[in-house]
């Protein structure tokens, strides 16, 4: 525990110096000042792994405007670049996230992250390379493993980068993160209902599998798909061949199995 506290102090000091704010007291109400107090970011969007004292600071940091966030991403300080990635990830800025692919090759600099530990009341921090951290972020948002490789990014994610709203997984992430906010969930589901049909069926089916839609909701939405789309699905036609998740044959099979369970009789 002593070592943990020491490491916290060391990191705090490092970040504070980097921002040039050591000379005055930080104002936690100011997102820019809150940045100086961040000692670790959650790796799997798992906030409970972060020291409770850190959580309000991280929440404040996430409010940072895009311009300041982008300034962090361009910082010469690796920790600040890592915090910039965390903010972009928490803000769900898909275009912003997809523009960060060059950081997949940053294996030299590190960001402190909260290690997944099981014990009660303890928090462990370790360094993680920016490349690893961004790989985890992409996995969270797009459902596939780019493995710190820009080539894999280009193969898996680039084909849909121009239309990020047509990725399936981000809608699931948004629903999951908004779960406690009924109004927000309703807004997201409204947006999903307006998606192109070939995307909508996959989002709804996956959402049902993740218990984000009830069976009745999912059936109603799938039943509302046009007949041609339903027929194409039933015939096993591969809709969304560019969707990175659906490039996995076993994932596609699992999704189609759930779709089959939900399929509404004509």
């Amino acid at each position: 525990m002593i070592a943990h506290r020491l490491s916290i102090c060391g990191m705090w000091l490092g970040v504070a110096l980097a921002l040039g704010v050591a000379a005055h007291a930080a104002d936690p109400a100011d997102p820019a000042d809150a940045v100086s107090q961040v000692i670790a970011v959650p790796r799997h969007n798992q906030w409970t792994l972060v020291d409770p004292e850190q959580r309000p600071i991280l929440k404040k940091v996430v409010e940072l405007p895009a311009a300041q966030r982008d300034q962090l991403l361009r910082s010469s300080d690796a920790r600040l670049r890592g915090i910039g990635i965390f903010i972009a990830e928490q803000q769900g800025d898909l275009a912003g996230l997809l523009s960060l692919k060059d950081k997949l090759s940053d294996n030299a600099s590190t960001v402190p992250y909260a290690v997944p530990v099981a014990q009660v009341g303890e928090y462990v921090i370790r360094p993680q390379t920016l490349a690893d951290y961004l790989t985890t972020v992409y996995q969270e948002w797009f459902g596939v493993d780019v493995d710190k490789s820009q080539e894999r990014f280009d193969n898996l994610l680039a084909p849909l980068s121009g239309q990020p709203q047509n990725f399936v997984q981000p809608w699931i992430v948004r629903l999951r993160r908004a779960a406690s906010d009924e109004k927000a969930v309703a807004e997201i589901k409204k947006s999903i209902a307006a998606l192109p049909e070939d995307v909508r069926w996959a989002v709804v089916t996956l959402g049902y599998g993740d218990s984000l839609y009830s069976k009745a909701e999912a059936r109603a939405l799938l039943g509302g798909l046009s007949r041609p789309i339903q027929e194409r699905l039933r015939s096993g036609e591969e809709l969304l061949p560019n969707e990175p998740l659906l490039q996995s044959t076993s994932f596609r099979a699992a999704l189609m199995r759930v779709y089959g369970e939900l399929a509404v009789a004509d």
Binding site: P116, G121, Y208, S211, S250, F251, V258
Partner: peptide
């Protein structure tokens, strides 16, 4: 005696390798 536990999900099925338990299937709930 834990605050939390970690498992794995792939293809909408859940696996608990610490105990060799699973896969657990159906919806997430």
């Amino acid at each position: 005696w834990f605050a939390r536990h970690f498992i794995v999900k792939i293809n909408m099925a859940y696996y608990d390798p610490s105990y060799g338990a699973g896969p657990f299937t159906g919806t997430q709930e």
